[in-house]
Write a protein that binds this DNA or RNA. Structure first.
Lengths: 134, 134
DNA sequence: GGGAATGTAATAAATAACTATTACAATAGG
DNA sequence: CCTATTGTAATAGTTATTTATTACATTCCC
């Protein structure tokens, strides 16, 4: 579980956890039925209080995307069918790309510039597996 | 001045203001010498307390990107030369695209998928000038 | 049954962000 | 000089996030 949590970010840690798990499920990196790290495990892992992780899990449980069972653990919920999962996976990708393009466009960059920047960055992708976001 | 501030975001409003102004300057939408909205104007505009805008302006002033003068107003600082500005403009674009690609890649999307999603979104760009970010 | 591991809960304290309010200081313009 | 407009400042109060601590409830396994 590499959550990439940033404790110095201004977005609350429990929200970051929710977002990451949401994304990982949508992207298929967490499969239905799979067990998530223990609250205490994850808390120790990202150096955060137990309550903070618990809060994230509780919210995700309320939404139905995970299922927490005291004494047993926490598991990714089952999801209707493959088509829906695939649709969500596509939607997630689209929204990430779309938001980035909206931002560049809003700032007045031309389609040409954007296209070029994208092509450059994409060509670098394979060599950049483990790099961190600033 | 369309700052696109989201009062419900978990990132602090004064940080959002700083970020937007940074970006607009880097992108060339705010020119050196240009006057920024009054603290009270901007506060009223985005429905926020005067202190919140003041805080953002003070920080930006400390960084030197704007120059605040009591009794007169706030202005975009002069910047060394055109080449440096153009370099910053390029860097901003790169970082936006790069961050988005990092995220998709981190979530396991293939270069093919990403490329396709990007091409689709880019083709829609021209018709989406005034759309808001969710 | 007993113990270890799990999630759940409650309380208190610290910090940060934001608001509201009021006042002050410098500049521009009549 | 007077007044309006600008940025600056200080105080107090509210809310949200996070931590620390302690305890409880359920499940599993021996």
């Amino acid at each position: 579980m590499k959550l990439n949590i940033d404790p110095d970010s201004s977005v609350p840690i429990y929200i970051q956890i929710e977002d990451r798990i949401h994304s990982m499920i949508a992207a298929g990196q967490l499969q239905p039925g799979e067990q998530l790290p223990t609250i205490r495990e994850l808390a120790a892992d990202i150096r955060v209080n137990l309550n903070t992780v618990a809060r994230a899990y509780i919210e995700l449980d309320r939404e139905g995307v995970i299922s927490t069972q005291r004494g047993r653990g926490t598991f990714v919920s089952d999801v209707p069918n493959k088509k829906q999962r695939e649709r969500k996976r596509q939607k997630l990708l689209q929204s990430i790309v779309e938001n980035a393009l909206e931002e560049t466009h809003h700032l007045g960059y031309s389609a040409e510039e954007i296209k070029k920047a994208f092509a450059e960055q994409l060509s670098k992708l394979p060599e950049k597996r483990e790099e961190k976001l600033s």
